[in-house]
Design a protein around this nucleic acid. Structure first.
Length: 466
DNA sequence: AGCCTTTGACCAGCG
DNA sequence: TCGCTGGTCAAAGGC
């Protein structure tokens, strides 16, 4: 466990001294931008990027060329930025961020195959920006990168792109203003567009968050489509926001100010580890957790790398109780695998984590959503960068029945593609939620409306769209 | 004292 | 029936 402890310690060290999220991210962008402007060979750019596992494979394989050519916000930038940051960190604190073994990340083939799903690049999840004020209908929305705090520049093909190379705050702000001032925000095209997969075209919807979801949240599209996002994604998303803005989040606070991420506030529930086993076919041991709430049948299996990064999370069942208040959550000694710190990195590290969420009923019904969740940061090694450079696809359970939101959808899509390009170091734990029945998955304390069902290619079971 | 993790043993499903 | 595998139990120990 030494390695893990070390990792935690690292996180702890990062906590205090780390600059405000906004500042940090801004710096990162600037650095990335400067890199971009350099004459660095594109091949280098492509090679220096970090990788993104899973479904992203598809994204990468089909767009890697574009990514390399565009050199846009891609891997090189982020990777470079991270590298620079790591170097500075090492120089300043004497600490050398450990390299991550990215081999652990397994692709979610099924997701990648599903063309009906939107492929979103790593580091950015639909929910990331869906959770942003741009889509928020409530007043709790706070400024965030997803609300337009990132600069967007025009794109030749009409799609939007994020220009992180443009570090001008003025431009950013203006862009954001435009962003915020339009109900149907528009991404400004960019000459050097980030890669947008042809397969990304699929229907995408604009999303709205109904409220601030505690542990599980529903993101509802304008046409009523919703996704259930597990707390993991939710909290990580919050963390993402926290990195780029002064976003305030209760859970985030717990993570950062509590005990260096050693709390159990991962998803708001308390878990007790009751077993661990090396599963065949899995490179890392699988841990078994139970919800500690009385009579709560929920369990989760977590696979994590030696570095402590989650590679897969499988939830089973549905909580039959509300999320315990923060004060009642277990603090020390928690085995939570999704806790802020170690799993997803901390403010100081530049690792963006996303997750794929699959809600699967034992009756075969599989709900699938995904979520690039995390804005946490951690340095990863070159291998990882290579493997995940252009990965980052996440899928959304949406069939594109939307109509008036088509344009928005495309914008979001483009935005996702762009942003994904921006966030390089992405780790994508696969999150699966298994419930005993369709009812269970819906019985999560929220109200769901089924708006469709579809048999998805590669999955014999109908996919519920709620 | 209470809750947690660890870990070897045990059990059940499956081919 | 046997062996493999995944999941769970429960004792021991730590915090």
């Amino acid at each position: 466990m030494g390695g893990f402890d070390d990792h935690v310690g690292v996180i702890g060290d990062w906590g205090a001294p780390s600059p405000s999220p906004r500042t940090f991210f801004s710096n990162m962008l600037e650095e990335a931008g400067s890199r971009l402007e350099s004459d660095k060979p594109k091949d280098d750019i492509a090679n220096s990027g970090f990788t993104f596992p899973g479904p992203d494979k598809q994204f990468r394989s089909e767009n890697s060329d574009q990514v390399a050519k565009q050199g846009g916000f891609g891997e090189a930038k982020v990777g470079s930025a991270r590298s620079g940051f790591a170097e500075r960190l090492a120089a300043r604190t004497g600490y050398s961020a450990p390299r991550l073994n990215t081999d652990i990340v397994k692709p979610s083939a099924d997701l990648a195959k599903d063309s009906s799903y939107l492929t979103i690049p790593p580091g950015l999840s639909p929910t990331s920006f869906l959770d942003s004020p741009v889509f928020l209908s409530n007043s709790l929305a706070q400024p965030s990168p997803t609300t337009g705090k990132f600069p967007f520049a025009p794109n030749a093909n009409g799609r939007s792109s994020m220009m992180f190379s443009d570090s001008s705050d003025r431009n950013k702000d203006k862009l954001f203003e435009d962003f915020n001032n339009t109900s149907s925000f528009a991404f400004k095209p960019v000459p050097e567009s980030a890669p947008i997969s042809n397969q990304v075209n699929p229907p995408f919807m604009s999303w709205q968050t109904e409220n601030r979801f505690p542990s599980q949240n529903i993101q509802t599209s304008q046409n009523g489509a919703s996704l259930l996002h597990h707390s993991v994604a939710t909290e990580k998303r919050a963390e993402v926001n926290g990195n780029v803005q002064d976003h305030h989040d209760e859970d985030a606070d717990q993570r950062t100010s509590g005990d260096n991420g050693n709390n159990n506030s991962d998803d708001g529930y308390n878990w007790r580890k009751y077993g661990q086993k090396q599963v065949k076919g899995s490179e890392y041991p699988r841990s078994y957790y139970k919800c500690t709430h009385a009579n709560c049948p929920v369990k989760k299996k977590v696979e994590r790398s030696h570095e402590g990064h989650i590679t897969e999370i499988i939830y089973k069942g549905a909580h039959n109780h509300p999320k315990p208040p923060p004060s009642r959550r277990s603090g020390l000694g928690s085995s939570s695998d999704i806790q802020g710190g170690n799993e997803w990195g901390q403010d100081g590290n530049l690792e963006v984590t996303s997750s794929t969420i699959v809600h699967q009923g034992q009756n075969g019904t599989q709900f699938e959503s995904s979520d690039a969740v995390d804005g946490s940061t951690t340095f990863s090694n070159d291998e990882e960068e290579d493997d995940r450079a252009t990965h980052g696809s996440v899928s959304l359970g949406y069939d594109g029945e939307g109509d008036e939101s088509e344009s928005k959808r495309r914008k979001v899509e483009a935005y996702a593609a762009e942003v994904s390009g921006a966030s390089r170091a992405i780790r994508e734990p696969r999150v699966v939620v298994q419930t005993t029945s369709e009812v269970d998955i819906l019985d999560d304390g929220y109200r769901w409306r089924k708006y469709g069902q579809k048999v998805v290619k590669g999955n014999p079971n109908p996919r519920l769209l709620t």
